[in-house]
């Protein structure tokens, strides 16, 4: 185990950064357990994603718009939880989860694929008839993702860095409500991204619990803020969420601050674990 002490001259502006900057001395070896556990978490989610996507695609292909709409958000949850790993395959991430903004012709662009293309037809046009081929392709891409992740060796820095990546996702596209702009189901994504991030923190927590107690307390406080804000917006006994439009300005602001602070704090998590 590499216990070479890190540079000890790190200084901190008082109050400027939430917690100390003296780096933890845990070496990458310590991460074998957490990474293995995370791989199981990702595999379970991707397996579930494939299963649920098959149901969603079947509904689309049968022209059952109501059922397709009902399955849309719960299916995506499994993707959103493990997005940092899915994003390692940029071709598949684009095929599955890109938004109209990524294409010059926006919604009308023939290259616009995946979940959000189907979302557009279901909510904006109230039809599934023009996206049957898109649905077939989506299922094929999800299965391909499942297969590639099965063969993947998880890089520890990607796993640990994923905690911050998920918060960056929320800060960049969820807080504005632009990710699921047709269906307004962004609160589901909020929750899934946050769960995915929190899972990573939980897995590495024992490695830094002593040395970074203050840091973890601040991180926990902000996760709690996000979960507390989301709670009143739950529907169906906690199985779903109301429309993003119901989120009040005040709650959005409180959430934005917590998310931004999590993104800042979790950006130091790799370093704290001795990773590059």
């Amino acid at each position: 185990m590499n216990l070479k002490p890190f540079i000890s001259t790190v200084v901190l502006l008082a109050g400027g950064v939430a917690s100390g900057v003296a780096l933890a001395q845990s070496a990458p070896l310590d991460l074998v357990g957490p990474v293995a556990e995370y791989k199981i978490y990702v595999s379970e989610n991707v397996d579930q994603l494939a299963k649920e996507t098959a149901k969603f695609v079947a509904a689309v292909k049968s022209g059952d718009v109501a059922r397709a709409k009902a399955l849309y958000a719960p299916t995506r949850v499994y993707y959103e939880r493990v997005e940092p790993i899915a994003e390692l395959f940029s071709d598949l991430d684009a095929a599955i989860d890109s938004r109209a903004d990524d294409y010059e012709g926006a919604e009308k662009d023939p290259e616009f694929p995946g979940f959000h293309r189907i979302e557009y037809s279901l909510w904006e046009k109230n039809t599934a008839s023009d996206v049957k081929q898109v649905a077939d392709k989506l299922l094929a891409d999800v299965k391909e993702l499942q297969s590639r992740i099965g063969k993947l060796t998880f890089p520890p820095e990607v796993v640990v860095g994923g905690a911050a990546v998920l918060m960056e996702e929320v800060a960049a596209t969820k807080i504005s409500g632009e990710e699921n702009r047709y269906s307004k189901v962004d609160l589901w994504d909020f929750k899934a991204n946050t769960d995915g991030s929190y899972k990573i923190v939980e897995l590495v927590r024992p490695l830094i619990a002593k040395k970074e107690a203050k840091f973890l307390a601040e991180v926990d406080r902000n996760f709690k803020t996000v979960y507390d804000i989301l709670k009143p917006y739950e529907t169906n006994g906690g199985k779903g969420y109301v429309s993003y439009e119901k989120l009040t300005d005040k709650d959005r602001t409180v959430m934005a601050a917590a998310i931004n602070k999590l993104a800042e704090d979790l950006s130091t998590l790799r370093g704290k674990l001795g990773l590059k």
Binding site: T9, G16, K272, K276
Partner: peptide, 11 residues
């Protein structure tokens, strides 16, 4: 600004 360990985001 303070120098941080390069494994951390710079200050």
């Amino acid at each position: 600004p303070p120098d941080y360990d390069p494994r951390l985001p710079p200050a």
